[in-house]
Nucleic acid binder design. Structure first.
Length: 255
DNA sequence: ATGGCAGGAAGCTCCTGA
């Protein structure tokens, strides 16, 4: 089973890229973030025609998440239970006995901003919810745009980014708490190339200059981590015309 | 030097992203 995540930065604009990628790679499950599409305008027929079922939780202009699946979807949940939030950032479903959580963690803007505090509050609520999910679902995968680079090796220039949003101690501590709960960073289960990133700024020719960050992740429960055979970032979509600033990451789980 | 690029909604500019 191939599971993947991709922040598409507008599903409307990226739909051709997504459909190409589905055809090329044939993933079983794909989590999307930043669809920026309200539910009434979701491109349902195009995605169904590609052979996928889909659930989505969107809003106009900002945020928005979706999960595509080649297999039957059940037990759909939107948002973090008990956490009041207008922003559509979370969707959870069950596919083939695997609980899949799709998450778009807040960006945080700057460490001294209200949005940073919102990010920390959000991450706290997310972590507490995932603790209960982990008890209920031994086979649990949490995929998405975490907006956190867990370690310096996940940052093109750690000195320049030191203390900034995406790498600050409190954000990294929040990520570490998820790992301490038992989740594994799927990407780090295997040897990986240096300078492996999932996001590159649109500006300053950052992609060609390899100035990126690894902020999109696949976290796996112990059960799924034991059965994970591969995890890889696919940078091809980032090099296309009019790309998303993020590129997909996928993992293969033996089921 | 806080720039730069992109998307969306609105509308000839601004907010947000990361």
């Amino acid at each position: 089973m191939i599971i993947a995540t991709w922040n598409v930065n507008s599903l409307k604009v990226r739909l051709p890229h997504l459909l190409d990628w589905l055809q090329q790679r044939g993933p079983d499950v794909v989590c999307l973030q930043e669809t920026k599409t309200e539910n009434a305008k979701f491109p349902l027929t195009d995605i169904q025609a590609a052979g996928y079922q889909v659930e989505y939780s969107g809003q106009k202009t900002y945020n928005g998440v979706a999960i595509l699946s080649r297999h039957a979807i059940s037990d759909i949940q939107t948002d973090i239970p008990g956490f009041a939030d207008e922003q559509k950032r979370v969707l959870a479903v069950t596919v083939a006995g695997v609980r899949v959580v799709c998450a778009y963690v807040p960006n945080g803007q700057a460490v001294d901003s209200e949005k940073y505090q919102y990010k920390l509050n959000w991450l706290s609520a997310f972590q507490h919810w995932l603790a209960t999910e982990l008890e209920r679902h031994p086979r649990l995968a949490v995929l998405g745009d975490y907006n956190i680079a867990p370690a310096d090796e996940d940052v093109h220039d750690p000195k320049a980014w030191e203390g900034q949003v995406l790498v600050s101690d409190r954000e990294r501590a929040a990520f570490r708490q998820l790992v301490e709960m038992g989740f594994k960073d799927g990407f780090r289960l295997f040897p990986q190339p240096e300078k492996s990133f999932t996001w590159w700024d649109y500006r300053m020719n950052a992609f060609k200059r390899k100035m990126g960050m690894r902020i999109d992740h696949i976290l796996l429960s112990p059960d799924l981590a034991r059965n994970c055979r591969h995890c890889e970032i696919d940078i091809e979509p980032r090099g296309r015309e009019r790309p998303s600033d993020h590129t997909p990451i996928w993992a293969e789980i033996e089921t």
